[in-house]
């Protein structure tokens, strides 16, 4: 479903702020794979996801989604294949627009947008039904501005928007990091539910090692722009946080440096 071939990305090349963010990343995901990504600060986790989304072009290498080479496609054209939830709850929705308007925008992801009326009554009923599954009471607030929702509600809505048009690949970039623990759990459970229900292929960055172990069927660890460790299946589910920390120290020769990860 996803093939990332040897991609490199350096920011601010040739300046004093030069930062090699991706240093030859290879990754292959099969349909239905759910991979969790961990790594220290500046390991290249978000850069990897953003490269796949086309937020910026990569320096070299290629990215293939479901047989289509998207390496040179601009961000809005790749959106057809991708569902995304960001770390910042403000980023995934349009705050000044209503809940139903946000949903209708997401419902047309990957489709041409013309001069047809933006929301039909049939759609409205469908949105209501979908929102009711979130269990947050949003189904009765179709014409509330999204800006009035809490961070958790916005993240749940963004998640629904990301999956309502089944994406080839769902990308979750620390999407629960800005939420309080209880809300984070709710959103994480919703993510699991959506991924299982539609057999989605998904990537999730998390700073919570326990989450990284308990969710998904694969786990990769990144360090200095490379994937330094990758594990799947039985071996992954039997891991412990200590195992991971030790693995990291063994391979990288450093202590695991992610302030938030260590606080968990």
């Amino acid at each position: 479903m996803l093939k990332v071939n040897n991609i490199y990305k350096t920011f601010n090349k040739g300046t004093i702020n030069e930062k090699r963010a991706l240093n030859g990343v290879d990754l292959e995901l099969n349909e239905g794979d759910f991979v969790t990504i961990i790594g220290g600060n500046g390991a290249g986790k978000s850069t990897l996801l953003n490269s796949i989304c086309g937020v910026f072009p990569v320096d070299s290498g290629s990215i293939v989604i479901d047989g289509t080479d998207v390496t040179r496609l601009p961000e809005h054209k790749r959106a057809k294949y991708l569902g995304r939830v960001f770390q910042d709850p403000m980023m995934g929705t349009a705050a000044d627009m209503w809940i139903e308007e946000n949903l209708s925008l997401a419902f047309r992801r990957g489709k041409p947008r013309g001069l047809k009326w933006a929301i039909t009554n049939k759609e409205r009923a469908m949105y209501k039904e979908m929102l009711s599954h979130l269990g947050l009471g949003l189904e009765n607030r179709l014409s509330s501005k999204v800006g009035l929702l809490s961070g958790g509600q916005r993240q749940a809505l963004t998640l629904l928007m990301a999956v309502m048009q089944k994406p080839k690949l769902l990308l979750l970039d620390e999407h629960t990091a800005a939420l309080d623990p209880k809300t984070a759990e709710t959103v994480l459970n919703l993510s699991d539910k959506f991924i299982a229900e539609s057999n989605l292929t998904a990537m999730m960055i998390t700073h919570n090692m326990k989450d990284a172990i308990t969710h998904g069927n694969k786990l990769i660890m990144m360090h200095e722009g490379r994937i330094i460790y990758s594990v799947s299946g039985e071996e992954k589910s039997s891991l412990t946080v200590d195992d991971l920390l030790k693995k990291f120290a063994d391979i990288s020769g450093e202590e695991f440096a992610n302030d938030r990860a260590l606080l968990n």
């Binding site: 989304c53 961000e75 809005h76 054209k77 959106a79 057809k80 991708l82 995304r84 960001f86 403000m90 980023m91 995934g92 929705t93 349009a94 705050a95 000044d96 627009m97 308007e101 209708s104 925008l105 997401a106 047309r108 992801r109 990957g110 489709k111 947008r113 013309g114 001069l115 047809k116 009326w117 933006a118 928007m161």
Partner: peptide, 22 residues
């Protein structure tokens, strides 16, 4: 319209707009 909505989304949140294929 669909196009009009995508214009509003562009003004409101460009990241969101692009992530939704606008």
């Amino acid at each position: 319209t669909e196009l009009g909505h995508s214009l509003r989304a562009t003004g409101c949140n460009q990241n969101m707009a692009r992530a939704n294929g606008i």
